[in-house]
Amino acid sequence: MTSTPLACESQDLSVVYRDEPVLRHVNFRVPTGSVMGIVGPNGAGKSTLIKAMLGLVKPLTGHATFFGQPFGDVRKRVGYMPQSASVDWDFPTTVIDLAVMGTYGELGWIRRPGKAERARAMAALEMTGMQDFASRQIGELSGGQRQRAFLARALVQAPDLYFMDEPFQGIDAKSQQAMIEVLKDLSAQGKTIVIVHHHLASVLDFCDHVTLLNKRIIASGPGPETFTKDNIRMAYEASDGAEAFLAEAG
């Protein structure tokens, strides 16, 4: 474990909203090349953990590093897929324009995307099977197509580390399969993926590492040995969803 270099790591990260602690002393470590699932009940601070690590929320204590460096120095190596609910789907932008946004980081201030950037965006859309929808407005897509469009944007960024906030929320089986294929490809290329997920039953289908979070880290590490009944029960503190899952799992 210790020999694997870390793609990202947080040390003693605590976040407080007003005077309510959201995260307490989180030491979160993601080995390079792993697919890490973050699971936990609603309000466990899953999205906050990502935001705090990326400097979007100011932590009260602690800090995060990416490939051993502060985030500001390695921005271009980190990609991001937002939670579907936080997107303005009526925004007048097409699928191809969305994917082109993935190139904005390397373009820097003022420079505009040109033919090369559009070609890269198109290639990414082909990878997620969205090339036929390039000129659709994003609100006209189905749930699965929407997520695939955003996945394409993340692919255009060509990062070494992906953060995805509930990428399988509200999508059809076909889209889910297509996305998992892409994730497996990325993983095979040695990319690191961090996924916020809330469907307990399917976590181990595509994650080799799991972190159980409920304001603090309950357990974190390789999938099967971390994702145990006891740990799940502790993370969910007898919430209904987990009980049902545990009963089903026997």
Partner: peptide, 8 residues
């Protein structure tokens, strides 16, 4: 915070 950390 320390207490919650030591619980872990």
């Amino acid at each position: 915070l320390v207490r919650s950390a030591s619980v872990r």
